[in-house]
Design a protein around this nucleic acid. Structure first.
Lengths: 217, 217, 217, 217
DNA sequence: TATGAATGAGCATTCATTCAT
DNA sequence: TATGAATGAATGCTCATTCAT
């Protein structure tokens, strides 16, 4: 066996970190930061728990990194999404649609966002991060889009940050509802085909309602 | 000296329990269930930590009681509120207005509701409480009102549970925003009079947007 | 109401102490020293738990006093008993008989003696009390009687302390057995008359066996 | 360095568990269940107290296991012993002799048995374990042997369970005495050789007396 | 890299004891 | 005397983290 090259090693290292973060998110959405145990995360990832410390300095560092990765991903997605051409109103509609569809396939992500804002204080000092700043950051591409829409007259005027947050509140409660209804239907033993249609109707309502927040009277 | 009468003792007990629950809620909104320490709660209440166990069997029991008290209060308020006469649409408008005003005086309550649904699993077994049931329960008076509004044609038709949740999502994100803006303004040292007006405008927008979810097209 | 006289007060005080000690012994035979809680003892006595401290300095003092009272009583009884005229052999026979009969009426006493020697270290420092001394003290009247019997040739010669202990071991295991059989029979719902005879036979065997330890070959 | 093999780990685990149980028994014979602290056990074993919980779920589980190990060992020994060929009477004589000799080398075992029956209620619920059943179980091989002896006419007839208990009571008080005398002699600074003879005499008396319980008149 | 045994700070909880009334 | 609210030292237990292999 020839020893692994540096590249191979780095590749493995990167992969392992990914695995651990994946495991962490699964544990996290269930338990939240304080109740998530490093041991759970390691088992979930199929590793000896000591090994986690080889990849992450400590629990806080692991979760900071998890947060930053998730945030970056979502920011990237949102940014790209709202930079698209087209009616701002339609953009928000499509956006709501897409994130709702995603939740039905993998509910981990919205559950992550439900929790994380409440746990940021465990990860960052107030100097490092105010929840206010956080929201502004997270919402930035939407806020921009809303302001553009206001300029175009397709969105009623007002505080764009607030609108973005309310839109997000409406969408995320909608996702929540979709998630729970889906779980309920699965728990009752329904086959997937049986409830697809039902979920689709709910999804459409979520989208329509959410964008109604923007409608000029 | 003769010992305290039974009435005196009952008075003391009632008072102390209240104080402890008040302290618990303050700690809780900051830290969440797992990170809330019984010691913190005791200090916050200005009591020896042993005393907390004189009044509550253990941490879980304390938080269960806190939850149930808060829930009952809110359910009572919401129920009474939505049983009032008058246009359903106006009721929701007033409701949003009132809860938003309350948050500016005492932000503890919305912060409590932000967290609690994520912590219920620590307090109850799945058999005792499914989050789905919880939401349905919590939202029940609103859902009823929405259905009434749909019947009257003043609210657009749809899944009333979902609408209630989205309304709640929109309002609570709005409260959140109000809370944060107020904190920001206070942190900057502004005197109350200086920002009252600004907050009022935001509040109005929160209300208007939230009820737009119900508007028939 | 005229105030109580000093005599009345002292009488009450004495009585209360007795009540507390009675309560203590009941708790003690069940739980042992460390697991006996002052609160249990107070409830058992029907008193507020603070009051116990008015009568006894602390837990250790209470149990020391309990021990000393019990010891004195038993020493008095044994001493008087073995100072009687008559055949030493018959004395031991009668002694075994009496203590066995007592256990059927009130099993608390032998249970107390089963435990107490193991708990003395919690009550006294080694300087104050060695278990060896304790046994010698407790057994003294018996030892004396045995030596007398040896002198008379009615008891086989040997280490009288040891003989007393083995006699005691045999009797107390016998009492144990009687106690347990009686409990078993009661638990099965038998009426008292039904098992009296059975217990009597066991009792006789306990007595006969125990004194056989002394028989000269 | 490569990590330890599975075999190495299993070896370590087995060893550590043994060490902890050994430490526990030493603490236990001194203090009893309630007063034995997990910290004491850990220090006694020379380990961090957290480690004890790595090997045993909690205090109760540790002591249950200790009890079961000791019980199994003793049951095995007694069973094998009394299944030997030969005069039943001689068997009991030899048995008494052996256990008494053992106590002089390692007094921990009889001390353990002195205490444990009083602590079983802390370890098991009444449904799991009645003291009556316990004794019957513990004594079973002896009881069997006694019944055989009665059948052969070498032991006087009677309740075999009771006889076994009284025999045990006599032997264990004898061991107790031996243990205490030895301690006393050691405490006085006597060298071993000086008191060997004295202890031997006591031991012989213990044996002779104990078996006299079985002698047919 | 990888494992899992070992450590110990930290938190929940209990209970003897004190104290205001 | 009597009550029961209040205190805090002590103990059981957990879990993040380290370390020998």
């Amino acid at each position: 066996m020839s020893p692994r090259t540096r590249e191979q090693n780095e590749e493995i290292r990167k992969q392992r970190k990914q695995e651990i973060l994946q495991a962490a998110i699964r544990v996290y959405v269930d338990k939240g930061y304080s109740a998530s145990e490093m041991g759970d995360i390691a088992s979930q990832a199929g590793l000896a728990h000591g090994l986690v410390y080889y990849y992450f300095k400590n629990k806080k560092a692991l979760f900071r990194e998890l947060y930053e990765v998730m945030m970056e991903e979502s920011r990237q997605f949102t940014k790209t999404f709202f930079e698209q051409e087209g009616s701002v109103f339609e953009l928000f509609k499509n956006y709501a649609h897409i994130v709702c569809e995603r939740v039905l396939e993998d509910p981990v992500i919205p559950r992550f966002y439900m929790r994380i804002s409440l746990d940021l204080q465990h990860l960052y000092t107030p100097e490092e991060f105010s929840p206010f700043e956080w929201v502004k950051n997270f919402m930035y591409p939407m806020t921009q889009a809303i302001e553009k829409g206001i300029g175009q007259g397709t969105i009623q005027p007002g505080d764009a940050n607030l609108m973005a947050m309310q839109f997000w509140g409406s969408v995320s409660q909608g996702m929540n509802y979709l998630d729970q209804v889906q779980q309920e239907l699965i728990a009752q033993g329904n086959p997937e085909t049986a409830y697809k249609e039902q979920l689709k109707k709910i999804l459409d309502q979520v989208v329509e309602s959410s964008v109604s927040l923007f409608k000029p009277q």
